[in-house]
């Protein structure tokens, strides 16, 4: 899908229209659960889009992306915790429950973690990179399991959603629109980045690192920059999730969560702008449908995933292209 092409613009317009109308449709259908389901899809779309930046555009198979999702969530959770109990954090500042502070904080903190992990992991490539990102994510998982002060295994409850201006954030429809604003902003950002000079270099690195070195590009710093931006995006998603669920736990960074994010990217079509949105919608809807059927739905998800990987490469976007070619 070429950005800027007519079909992309059409797809974007269509997606925006559907997303904007959705809560009203949910209201008139008397099915408000649709709005919260859609909020979940949107939040995961941001996380998947951030992973897509490194995985789809940059070709870096990061298997630890849930770590940054969790770090973003915990930043909100911990700030709220300190705000609620009026405890100083690191002996310096008090917590806060203000969206306009917690959100940038979450983005910043996850960016710092991504910088540290990326700086080490990017010293290797290929299969080592996969193993290392997975291992570091697991390390953070264990760290938060052990942090009894912040709930350990049980996680941290956030009693109220963060405040934003005078909005009633408790209202699910309001929160949905707040999330939607961030989705639009984030996807616009990704669009700009992948079409910029930086994005061109990133795509070049995916297709041939040796070629990039031969034109004088030191690839490491570009990969690291992409990794950090990607970590920040996942942190943003985590912060939104913490507000949505009003709960954070180490499960947010469990390795299966990293796997799910990867599945979303692949399902939607890696290296496409809207792919992560489709992928997130597809996986969450599939989960919802299967889960209504059986509690052990992963027994179906596994084989479905295998079949998709083995026989339908290119994900949903590839399928759309295939159908378009047939027409």
């Amino acid at each position: 899908m070429e950005p800027g092409s007519r079909s992309t613009i059409l797809a974007i317009a269509l997606a925006l229209g559907v997303l904007f109308a959705l809560p009203f449709a949910a209201g008139s259908l008397g099915n408000p659960a649709m709005t919260t389901l859609a909020t979940r899809i949107l939040i995961y779309a941001i996380a998947a889009a951030s992973l897509n930046l490194v995985l789809g555009y940059g070709g870096l198979v990061s298997f630890g992306h849930a770590a940054f999702f969790g770090i973003g969530g915990y930043t909100v959770g911990i700030l709220f915790h300190h705000h609620r109990f009026n405890e100083a954090l690191f002996g310096l500042m008090l917590g806060t429950d203000q969206f306009l502070i917690t959100l940038p904080a979450a983005i910043l903190v996850s960016g710092l973690f991504a910088a540290a992990i990326g700086a080490l992991a990017l010293r290797t490539a290929g299969v080592q990179f996969i193993m290392i990102t997975l291992a570091f994510a697991q390390m953070l998982f264990f760290l938060f399991v052990a942090l009894k002060r912040y709930g350990g295994d049980d996680g941290l409850i956030i009693r109220r959603r963060n405040g934003l201006f005078d909005l009633n954030m408790r209202d699910d429809t309001t929160f949905y629109f707040v999330t939607l604003v961030f989705v639009v902003l984030f996807f616009a950002l990704v669009w700009r980045i992948v079409n910029s000079r930086f994005g061109l270099v990133l795509g070049g690195i995916r297709q041939g690192e040796r070629r990039m070195a031969a034109i004088g590009v030191s690839t490491y710093r570009y990969k690291l920059a992409a990794f950090v931006i990607s970590g920040m995006g996942a942190g943003l998603a985590g912060a939104l999730w913490a507000n949505y669920a009003r709960f954070v736990s180490p499960d947010m960074m469990h390795w299966t969560k990293s796997g799910e994010l990867m599945v979303m990217v692949i399902l939607g079509g890696a290296g496409t702008l809207l792919g992560p949105l489709f992928g997130s919608a597809a996986l969450i809807l599939l989960e919802t449908v299967l889960a209504a059927y059986t509690e052990r739905w992963q027994v179906f998800l596994g084989p479905i995933l295998i079949v998709i990987i083995l026989f339908f490469r290119g994900g949903l976007a590839g399928l759309v292209d295939l159908v378009k070619k047939r027409l």
């Binding site: 995985l55 198979v61 298997f63 290929g126 299969v127 996969i130 299966t256 796997g259 990867m262 599945v263 692949i266 890696a270 052990r296 739905w297 992963q298 027994v299 998800l301 596994g302 084989p303 479905i304 995933l305 295998i306 990987i309 083995l310 490469r313």
Partner: peptide, 19 residues
């Protein structure tokens, strides 16, 4: 590529664990 291998064998884990 490694990505396909990771995802397919991830699918295997989901299946085997649930089974």
């Amino acid at each position: 590529d490694h990505l396909d291998q990771v995802l397919a064998t991830y699918g295997l884990i989901l299946f085997l664990n649930e089974l």
